[in-house]
Design a binder for these strands. Structure first.
Lengths: 224, 224
DNA sequence: GTGGGCATGTGTCCATTATACACTTAGACG
DNA sequence: CGTCTAAGTGTATAATGGACACATGCCCAC
């Protein structure tokens, strides 16, 4: 950046991070929202997020906000996009760096601490009225998630340590909104070599038990 | 974002945009750099960029900076990533939103106006010492460009209005650092239906003249 | 203890796509 | 008119993707 001017001379915008925490539950893709208790958009639902502090990186800010508002950590987290149109916040100029996080449905227990009055997971198909441009941001995140399902193993962020191939397939079907052929799906997943059969079986169900699988490692990688 | 605090209360970071303007010339992928005439990194080369103004969007800021420092407009432009580690600028906290722009090699005529003492295109294979984290940013941009060549027609940003299939293939080969089979390349490109033969031929060369093609429209689309 | 309910788990054929590979053609120039 | 140079073109093979149906194992009710 050019520096023929004093850095401190310009008026500076506020910078926030907003986090899209996705999970799959009850056959739906859900996202964590918090209820605002301030104007503007008082009583609207919004993405969890907050101001970036001067001594933390953007990733750290996202991690911190996620922990504060959902109580979970060590989730998959990736930066999505930065939204900065001048009028997106009616009070003042706010630029927001958005992140996507993924959690297995068993992993989260919402703390009611944090900045917000309330928090909950909402199906992305039935979202309430949202603050700011958060609806647009969520659409962007869903698109990114759909695309990445196709060429990475990002789905591991949505699954517990062990899972059946049917669990895995259902997540794909829910997010992609398509139905997939069981045999072809299994062939393709197993051909990547990224998951491994644990040898253990799912127990206590009234039908043939399924093999439990797990990811060989928890790193997200590109698969093709 | 939560607003239980006054928005104006927090100390705010500076926000800049930095632009990676790529072009292909003389068999190399090149990028526009400008010479800094201020500390820190005085006399180092750096990405063109500057502060985001309070009344312009991020896209507008990137477009403006590009025009100011290279004199070109109406280029393909996409947001890349936002870099914001606290120590990336030694003076103060600066968060930078990076953009990638593409130009055909004939399109640019550098103005020596703008913030910088000098400007020039450098091969990405022979970059000078760069200011800040700009080397890292450039690597990120090259990766994005390589990936997008594979599943979009983004290459149109690097080509003039009409071009031969050999021109097109060379750009792929230079950016991907591979050699491609001529027949297979043509089959694949033509099967997308995105380019069309103009009927005109390249003239004035000492060998068989090549057909000139052009993109049916200038929008970047996903091709598969 | 046996039969019904239910989700698991498995293979083949066909269509499409990707890859390897070499010679003829058209114009410029001497 | 012969030579130089890049343009332009087709086929055979391999790999991948997609459609498709039935037997298996466990629980549970009777």
């Amino acid at each position: 950046m050019p520096t023929k001017y004093d850095v401190t001379k310009y008026e500076r915008p506020s910078v926030t991070v907003d986090v899209l925490l996705f999970t799959v539950e009850e056959g739906e893709l859900k996202i964590l929202l918090v209820k605002r208790n301030e104007e503007p958009f008082w009583d609207c639902w919004a993405l969890p997020g907050g101001f970036v502090r001067m001594d933390e990186s953007l990733d750290e800010a996202a991690t911190r906000e996620l922990l504060e508002e959902s109580g979970v950590k060590d989730l998959y987290l990736e930066q999505l996009y930065t939204f900065g149109s001048p009028k997106r916040d009616p009070r003042t100029r706010v630029i927001t760096v958005t992140y996507m996080a993924l959690a297995a449905k068993t992993e989260w227990k919402l703390k009611s601490s944090g900045d917000a009055r309330g928090a909950g997971f909402f199906s992305v198909n039935k979202l309430p009225k949202l603050a700011f441009d958060h609806a647009e941001i969520i659409n962007y995140g869903i698109q990114r998630l759909r695309n990445k399902l196709g060429y990475t193993n990002i789905v591991l962020g949505l699954l517990p340590g062990s899972f059946t191939l049917t669990d895995l397939q259902k997540i794909y079907e829910i997010i992609l909104k398509t139905s997939l052929d069981k045999r072809n799906f299994r062939k393709k997943i197993l051909s990547t070599g990224l998951i491994t059969a644990s040898g253990k079986m799912l127990e206590g169900i009234a039908h043939r038990p399924a093999m439990l699988y797990s990811f060989k490692n928890k790193r997200v990688v590109v698969t093709d």
